[in-house]
Design a protein around this nucleic acid. Structure first.
Length: 419
RNA sequence: GUGGCUAUAGCUCAGCAUGGCAGAGCACCAGAUUGUGGAUCUGGGUGUCGCGGGUUCAAGUCCCGCUAGCCACCCCA
């Protein structure tokens, strides 16, 4: 028999198997419950979008240049697998007329996102996010609200110890003037910066602040802080957000180096880390305000705020912190019939399914082997059937915990199983 | 996109330095058990040694290329 290489999964993707699924489900349930409690409704948007939608909002960034999962469809359209949810949700907000309903539109979404980079631990080409967006309001109260939702989700997922970092990056009014100050500060130091940062100095000076290269670190402390140079509206919003977060009982640290690289981000930015996290790579959820995004997409200027949280990493942290979800057995009842009684076994299973989950073992194996399988399945009961009993329309019901076994008429099985 | 490490049974891995019969544990199957379980004992190997090429009398082992995985960098919209 000729053999070929078995077909394996595509590079950088993975399966979530039944044994892991219960933990994922717990994280998803926590997300949906918290979102619902805050009046957010679920939205589902396509995982494919026009490449312009993604490129428009992330032009020039490495992320788009190198990591966008893009392709051409059969009609020659340039498409991308979405790398994040916000751009698509904002598009749907206008296309679906949510801009004409009560504002803000409070929305949440679960789903896979894609990035085309080299896989490593915790970074897959297909990964899963929980996304929250409040679109159509500039109120700082919503910044605090989405922060509270993020914390609520992580807490209810079983991650109580969190670190919240918070910052404001101003807006189109005050940021340009601040960026000039930042450039003025860094220009004399240019030669001491590493090459990427020398380039950033002119192209994207905010990025200088969250550079992680050791040689650039000494200069950060003396750099001007944007929170000291906010315009009046931004400054008031910054004060409000902090006050609201505090009154929600949420501890945070102001990290003046927390930034976003793209112009449409405004004011609030935040990230949640697990308590012990040191590096920048461990953010469980990150978000902020994006008052310039709708306009970037070509829609009417509309404010919005939200966050995205990664299930892959959250589930990892849950497992590491000992969160355990009792997995339900695949079937509560296993039906084991002698050879040739498949019909009768299926009938009995159908009867029992009125009250319990039931799986039939149709394999041609010894009874001992079938009992072994039933035990491993976690079945609480086993229904045994021989030809004699089938003729009488009875079966033996065995309680796997006690080992008690009684002969029962088929019709009485549901009653006995529901005790 | 860059660098390092790795690839042998369904899974985890040993064997490779110094080329010479394809191995272990777990899992799985069967039996002990005149049909009844997760424990125990006994038996069973289920394999293109990732793929392709090269060196050699001989390659799982040495060399080259490719693919994939892991780790880190870049980046994380």
């Amino acid at each position: 028999m000729p053999r070929t290489e078995p077909i394996r999964a595509v590079r950088g993707v993975r399966d979530i198997l039944p044994r892991d699924r219960s933990l994922w489900r717990a994280a998803e349930r926590a997300a949906a419950e918290v979102a619902t409690r805050f009046g957010y409704q679920e939205i589902v948007t396509p995982i494919i979008e026009r490449v312009e939608l993604i490129e428009r909002v992330g032009e020039d960034t490495d992320a788009i240049a190198k990591e966008l999962y893009r392709f051409e469809d059969r009609g020659g359209r340039q498409l991308a697998l979405r790398p994040e949810a916000t751009a698509g949700i904002v598009r749907a907000y206008f296309e679906g007329g949510l801009n004409q309903g009560p504002q803000p539109a409070r929305l949440y979404l679960f789903g896979p996102m894609f990035r085309y980079d080299r896989p490593q631990k915790g970074r897959y080409r297909q990964f899963y996010q929980f996304d929250i967006e409040a679109i159509g309001s500039a109120s700082p109260a919503l910044d605090a609200e989405v922060i509270e939702i993020a914390r609520g989700w992580l807490n209810e997922s079983g991650i109580p110890e969190l670190k919240l970092e918070l910052n404001s990056i101003g807006d189109g009014v005050c940021r340009p003037a601040y960026l000039d100050r930042l450039r003025d500060y860094y220009r004399p130091l240019e030669e001491k910066l590493h090459p990427d940062c020398q380039r950033r100095l002119e192209t994207n000076p905010l990025r200088l602040l969250d550079c992680k290269v050791p040689q650039c670190q000494p200069f950060k402390a003396g750099a001007p802080r944007i929170t000291d140079h906010l315009c009046e509206p931004c400054s008031q919003a910054w004060t409000q957000v902090r006050r609201l977060v505090e009154s929600a009982g949420i501890e945070y640290v102001h990290n003046p180096y927390l930034v976003r690289g793209l112009d449409y981000y405004t004011r609030t930015v935040f990230e949640f880390y697990p308590a012990g996290a040191s590096g920048q790579q461990d953010a469980l959820a990150s978000g902020g305000r994006y008052d310039g995004l709708a306009e970037t997409e070509g829609w009417p200027s509309t404010p919005g705020v939200g966050f995205a949280g990664g299930f892959d990493r959250v589930v990892e942290v849950m497992a590491a912190s000992g969160v355990e979800v009792v997995a339900a057995p695949a079937a509560e009842v296993a039906v084991l019939a002698d050879a040739g009684l498949d019909h009768e076994a299926a009938n009995i299973a159908r009867i029992c399914r009125a009250v319990r989950s039931v799986a039939v073992d149709y394999e041609a194996k010894s009874l001992a082997a079938k009992m072994r399988s039933a035990a491993k399945l976690g079945a609480r009961w086993v229904v045994l059937l021989s030809a004699d009993e089938a003729a009488r329309r009875t079966a033996r019901l065995r309680d796997m915990a006690s080992g008690e076994q009684v002969e029962v008429a088929w019709d009485e099985l549901p009653e006995r199983l529901s005790r």
